[in-house]
Nucleic acid binder design. Structure first.
Lengths: 136, 136
DNA sequence: CCATAGTTTAGAATTAGTCTAAGTTCATCC
DNA sequence: GGATGAACTTAGACTAATTCTAAACTATGG
């Protein structure tokens, strides 16, 4: 009998490595990259490899436990917030902030009418200057 | 107004290579990648190099003659449309379509209020299924 | 002409992410 | 209580997109 780790609900295949990756993401306010997650996870599991971090991230995305954010700039970032939401990016310091626009459903309909697409999701990106950078 | 004008005011450094890259982008309905632009440009200028395509794209972006579209998936795409606009991406065939949402200005204000950012621009991405893929 | 600043070129380097093949884990069946 | 086999992990090779580097080229101005 194992001393710990008894998971049987939706998280049947939550291995030590996957759990470590999930904990890193859940423990952070910001939106770490795969590389940052790798470094943090290695503090708990020193032998974890880069490939496992990527494999775990794919698994966690598929099971809906984390959310991937891709902007063109550099690496994907990972978000513990899995509900639909939007992002603001600071043009000065690069900070990435989550927010939600309640009119998203209407927006999606409007965008679908314009583009003639059958809508699945919408995402809005605001670029500007964050409160901290504004002060200086 | 004609299809193109040879004004020299803002385009002082429009070399043969840069012009070829610009013409490729302007001649296409779709949104080519750097690699596609490189291949097309080489038909006009057989010795043009990949680095020059990237250098030219940077120059053309900076002078506002083309627009770069970055999604996480693969390479940047380049757009002859330089006015603010939004994008729809087909989840099945990957097609990328431009459209414009007239309520963008209000949206930007709403997003700015939510995020507390000083707004500079907004961009909306719709994901769904394009009209062609819907038919099948 | 000659200097020189800017541009182009080919290829090396970098970065993010995926693939592969071998090794590990672990539940379960007999 | 060991054999089996599927799923997972690992290290490192690999790929794709983009940037960097250093040499060669190309106007232009004096």
């Amino acid at each position: 009998m194992g001393p710990e780790t008894q998971n049987r609900t939706t998280e049947e295949k939550l291995t030590r490595q996957r759990e470590a990756v999930l904990q890193v993401i859940r423990s952070r306010e910001d939106h770490p990259t795969a590389s940052e997650i790798f470094q943090a996870a290695r503090l708990q599991l020193p032998t974890i490899s880069y490939a496992t971090v990527y494999n775990s991230l794919r698994f966690l995305k598929e099971t809906g436990l984390v959310h991937e954010i891709k902007f063109g700039d550099g690496a994907s970032r990972y978000d513990r917030e899995t509900e639909r939401h939007d992002h603001a990016i600071c043009n000065e310091c690069g900070k990435l902030v989550d927010f939600d626009l309640p009119q998203a459903a209407e927006l999606m309909q409007a965008a679908a009418r314009k583009s003639k697409f059958k809508p699945a999701s919408v995402h809005l990106t605001l670029r500007g200057v964050c409160p901290e950078c504004r002060k200086t």
